[in-house]
């Protein structure tokens, strides 16, 4: 699996889209660190960029890559390789190259301008989010018939996670405003990886104070060891579950 992943990885990192993505992140990060006098503010702006760009780029790139590799995957499958191995290799190398782009594009500026715990938490969250989105994209790609449909589905998913889901959260908050919603809100953020990433970073960046008593409660929770386990655990679930069902579907699929 590693050998195969390695070769695919070498291919993807030289892909123009990945190079452009790296450059984009790099330039934007540098600009933000230079424009914002306060590096904490830059980190918050980077968070905003992360939350939009990472899911969008990761999902669309992974989907396009999957369909562009279809014939190659077919060829690989005619070799003595199990299907799970082939798909896992594709997944790992796609995620790895997107992560590498993030580490170079955002990590180097962070290292240069703001190497503190908050920034690395941001980077780590970005890495988690990249992997989650790649996983979701593979799930969508394996289960949809053609490239156009696959891209359509991941765009919808992105739209849902980035925008529509929060709309539902807002509706729930307003319709059930009379009930204690702290726990529910916490649960709701866990059901959307983008929200989970956003909230965990936001609370790290001390925005918790704005949330008054509730915020202090959340901060205590997300800052504690069990909170970190919870966040990490949910993120890992968001990685494992889609790719697991992607592999399962792929094993049963007719190429």
């Amino acid at each position: 699996m590693w050998k195969l992943s390695k070769y695919i990885f070498y291919d993807i990192v030289r892909n123009k889209v990945i190079i452009a993505y790296t450059l984009f992140l790099f330039i934007v990060s540098l600009l933000l660190f230079n424009l914002e006098e306060n590096s904490a503010k830059a980190i918050l702006s980077l968070l905003n960029i992360q939350l939009v760009t990472i899911p969008l780029i990761s999902m669309i790139f992974a989907t396009i890559h999957y369909y562009n590799s279809y014939e190659f995957i077919e060829m690989l499958l005619s070799q003595p390789l199990s299907r799970s191995r082939v798909l896992w290799s594709e997944f790992l190398s796609t995620a790895a190259s997107l992560i590498l782009a993030l580490i170079i594009g955002m990590g180097i500026p962070i290292l240069l301008y703001s190497s503190n715990a908050d920034s690395f938490a941001l980077l780590l969250t970005g890495i988690g989010l990249t992997t989650v989105c790649t996983s979701i994209a593979f799930f969508a790609s394996v289960h949809s018939r053609d490239k156009a449909r696959g891209i359509g589905i991941v765009l919808l998913l992105w739209f849902y996670f980035a925008l529509i889901y929060d709309g539902f959260v807002l509706m729930i908050l307003f319709n059930f405003g009379d009930y204690p919603l702290e726990k529910i809100t916490l649960l709701l953020t866990a059901l959307n990886p983008i929200d989970l990433a956003r909230v965990s970073i936001m609370l790290k960046m001390d925005v918790s104070a704005l949330m008054g008593y509730t915020g202090a409660l959340y901060k205590e929770f997300f800052g504690s060891f069990s909170g970190i386990l919870y966040t990490g655990g949910i993120m890992i679930m968001w990685i494992i579950i889609p790719i697991y069902f992607a592999v399962r579907g792929f094993n049963r699929k007719d190429m």
Partner: peptide, 18 residues
């Protein structure tokens, strides 16, 4: 929104809010 429903602060910096 936040003034009316402080819990909505959990959505700070989301794309929806922007």
């Amino acid at each position: 929104i936040v003034e009316e429903n402080p819990n909505a602060l959990i959505l700070l910096r989301s794309i929806l809010i922007a």
